[in-house]
Deep mutational scan, measured.
Amino acid sequence: MIVFVRFNSSHGFPVEVDSDTSIFQLKEVVAKRQGVPADQLRVIFAGKELRNDWTVQNCDLDQQSIVHIVQRPWRKGQEMNATGGDDPRNAAGGCEREPQSLTRVDLSSSVLPGDSVGLAVILHTDSRKDSPPAGSPAGRSIYNSFYVYCKGPCQRVQPGKLRVQCSTCRQATLTLTQGPSCWDDVLIPNRMSGECQSPHCPGTSAEFFFKCGAHPTSDKETSVALHLIATNSRNITCITCTDVRSPVLVFQCNSRHVICLDCFHLYCVTRLNDRQFVHDPQLGYSLPCVAGCPNSLIKELHHFRILGEEQYNRYQQYGAEECVLQMGGVLCPRPGCGAGLLPEPDQRKVTCEGGNGLGCGFAFCRECKEAYHEGECSAVFEASGTTTQAYRVDERAAEQARWEAASKETIKKTTKPCPRCHVPVEKNGGCMHMKCPQPQCRLEWCWNCGCEWNRVCMGDHWFDV
């Protein structure tokens, strides 16, 4: 396979590697080409510095992935760790964990309700045991953590790749202090920090972006993250068709209702045909949960890209028209025109101005929308079919299609509260000796007794199943 190397943020060049090629071997190839010592090179990928003893497969490097290699003399205490030698983080029983690669970060837990604080980093599902597709590297999971809308060759929703760059020099040479644990960490600028490894760059702020994971991409090709779309790892039924499908869209209502993408497309087109989208002054033209839940309008309007190009163009047109109407304007009634106009409040005669090729020149009556006339309008008909009709959803289907309910059931079956801080902690095999993952707590306690870890627990039921 081919990976592209950008040395000291210059133009990239291809390097041929195998899945079992080590990072140090990659350094040696680059060092020979650039005429520099291999031990002064640092390989940066997806916000993480890659260790010498890791392989291309370990690092989730795919065909035509772009890695950054910078030349920086080692500072005291760094060289041993980078070589894969006596790194205290690798000691058996050590409590410190390697910062998780962005290629394996899962933010789907952050669609849980606000009262489930902490689960994004504490609760991990076991539903990723799908067998890898044919042709994928051994052991590589097909679980997708992110979804994007690819405006490039795909023109559809695709699995996405999370990447990070330095907000100062805009190069992907920043190593994160810690990985993101929720969508806010990724979507809110300057929320996460790190250290830029580019020479002479003092940058410390992280800037995240997404790429389409279905095809090789260049540095400049980015895609918009659709953070309401998630892999259906909890096997929730769709609120409309009641099938279990994946991926799904999880509405931001209190129940976190789930809808499959085909039904979401149908829901949007139906509402669009009836012009029953909601115009929100802050958000724009949007839709609420299909069950009509309060405070559930979709905030990231790129989710409506699921409509496809033709329907999305209609959505944008109707949204612009609705904006004009909300501002007190009118639409030209001549067939084939429909231009938005903003006449004076007491102006009865409205002319669709033909300047700049935008208007048709038609003069019409503001009251009856017919060709302009003197005197009273002959008839004014009330528009028919403008009443909002509820999208029919079966109550039982709505009850079963809740992301929140599956989460709470998982928590109930696989977790116990920490005796000190009461945060839910998952036990997935292993011994009875637990350690609270909350940095402010870190209590060592017994899963069996529910009390602080002691010699009695150690001698009596340390390794009970």
Rank of each mutant, 00 (worst) to 15 (best):
I2L: 12
V3T: 03
V5I: 09
R6K: 15
R6V: 04
S9H: 05
S9N: 08
S10K: 04
H11Y: 07
H11C: 05
F13V: 05
V15L: 10
E16D: 04
E16P: 12
V17A: 02
T21V: 04
S22D: 04
F24A: 14
Q25I: 02
L26Y: 00
K27R: 04
K27A: 03
E28D: 09
V29W: 12
V30K: 00
V30T: 03
A31M: 02
A31W: 01
K32H: 14
R33V: 04
Q34H: 14
Q34F: 13
Q34D: 04
G35T: 04
V36G: 01
A38R: 05
D39T: 06
Q40H: 08
V43Q: 01
A46S: 09
K48H: 06
E49D: 03
L50E: 01
R51A: 11
N52R: 01
T55W: 02
V56R: 00
D60K: 15
L61Q: 01
Q63G: 08
S65A: 12
V67F: 07
V67T: 01
H68M: 03
R72Q: 15
P73G: 07
E79W: 10
E79G: 12
M80E: 14
M80Y: 12
M80D: 14
M80F: 13
N81E: 15
A82L: 14
T83N: 11
G85K: 11
G85S: 12
G85P: 11
P88W: 08
R89M: 14
R89A: 14
R89E: 15
N90L: 13
N90V: 14
N90A: 08
A91D: 11
G93D: 11
G93K: 10
G93C: 09
G94V: 12
G94L: 14
E96W: 09
E98R: 09
P99V: 11
Q100T: 11
L102D: 11
L102N: 12
R104H: 13
R104T: 13
L107E: 15
S109A: 09
S109H: 12
S110F: 05
S110D: 14
V111C: 12
P113K: 13
G114N: 12
G114V: 11
G118C: 05
G118N: 14
L119R: 15
L119G: 15
L119S: 15
A120S: 14
V121M: 15
L123I: 08
L123S: 15
H124Y: 05
D126G: 09
D130R: 09
A134K: 11
S136V: 12
S136D: 13
P137L: 11
P137A: 12
A138D: 13
G139P: 12
S141L: 11
N144R: 08
S145T: 11
S145K: 06
V148A: 02
V148T: 04
G152I: 06
P153I: 11
Q155C: 09
G160A: 15
L162Y: 00
R163A: 15
Q165M: 13
T168K: 09
C169G: 01
Q171E: 13
A172S: 12
T175I: 15
T175L: 08
L176D: 02
L176Q: 03
T177L: 07
Q178M: 07
G179N: 09
P180N: 00
P180F: 00
S181C: 07
S181Q: 13
W183H: 02
D184L: 06
D185G: 00
D185H: 03
D185R: 01
V186W: 01
V186T: 03
P189C: 05
P189H: 05
R191E: 05
R191P: 02
R191T: 08
M192V: 11
M192Q: 04
C196T: 01
C196A: 01
Q197V: 10
S198R: 08
C201D: 00
T204D: 08
A206P: 09
A206E: 02
A206L: 03
E207D: 08
F209V: 15
F209C: 07
F210W: 07
F210H: 02
G213R: 06
A214D: 06
H215E: 03
T217D: 14
T217E: 15
S218P: 09
D219G: 07
S223A: 15
S223H: 09
I229H: 01
I229F: 05
A230W: 06
A230M: 10
N232G: 01
S233G: 07
S233P: 06
R234M: 08
R234P: 05
I236T: 09
T237D: 05
C238Q: 01
I239W: 02
T240C: 14
T240A: 14
C241E: 00
T242C: 15
D243H: 13
D243M: 14
V244W: 03
V244E: 04
R245S: 10
R245F: 03
P247Q: 06
P247K: 05
V248A: 03
V250T: 06
F251K: 01
F251V: 01
F251Q: 03
Q252H: 07
Q252W: 03
C253F: 00
R256E: 04
H257I: 00
H257M: 01
V258S: 05
I259A: 03
C260K: 00
C260P: 00
H265E: 12
H265A: 08
V269N: 04
T270H: 04
T270K: 04
N273K: 03
D274I: 04
Q276Y: 05
Q276R: 08
V278L: 09
P281C: 06
L283D: 07
G284V: 02
G284Y: 03
G284R: 04
S286K: 00
L287R: 02
G292L: 06
C293M: 02
N295K: 09
L297S: 05
H302G: 10
R305I: 07
R305F: 06
I306N: 02
L307F: 04
G308T: 05
G308F: 03
E310M: 07
Q311D: 06
Q311S: 05
N313Y: 15
R314P: 00
Y315H: 04
Y315N: 01
Y315F: 11
Q316C: 11
E321A: 12
C323K: 15
C323S: 15
L325C: 04
L325P: 03
M327F: 07
M327D: 11
G328S: 05
G328P: 03
C332Y: 02
C332P: 03
R334L: 07
R334I: 12
C337N: 03
C337M: 03
A339K: 14
L342S: 07
P343H: 06
P343E: 05
P345S: 13
D346N: 11
Q347A: 11
R348I: 06
R348F: 05
R348N: 06
K349N: 08
K349F: 07
K349S: 09
V350W: 04
T351R: 15
T351H: 08
E353M: 08
G355Y: 09
L358C: 14
L358V: 15
G359F: 14
C360H: 03
A363S: 14
F364A: 03
R366Y: 07
C368D: 03
K369E: 06
E370N: 07
E370F: 05
H373C: 03
C377P: 02
S378G: 11
F381K: 07
A383C: 11
A383M: 11
S384K: 08
S384V: 07
G385W: 08
T386M: 14
T388W: 09
Q389A: 15
Y391H: 07
R392I: 11
R392E: 09
R392H: 11
V393N: 05
V393F: 07
V393W: 06
R396E: 15
A397G: 09
A401R: 02
A401D: 02
E404K: 09
E404Q: 08
S407E: 12
E409G: 06
K416Y: 07
C418V: 01
C418R: 01
C418W: 01
P419E: 03
R420E: 11
H422F: 10
E426H: 12
E426D: 12
K427I: 08
N428D: 15
N428K: 15
C431T: 15
M432N: 06
H433M: 05
H433Y: 05
M434C: 05
C436P: 01
P437H: 11
P439M: 05
P439Q: 10
Q440V: 09
C441P: 00
R442I: 05
R442Q: 05
L443K: 06
L443V: 05
E444R: 06
E444C: 06
C446K: 01
C446R: 00
C446P: 00
W447T: 04
N448H: 07
N448D: 08
G450T: 06
G450L: 02
C451D: 15
E452D: 15
W453S: 02
R455A: 15
V456Y: 15
C457W: 01
G459M: 15
H461T: 01
H461Q: 02
W462H: 15
F463W: 02
F463N: 01
F463G: 00
D464S: 15
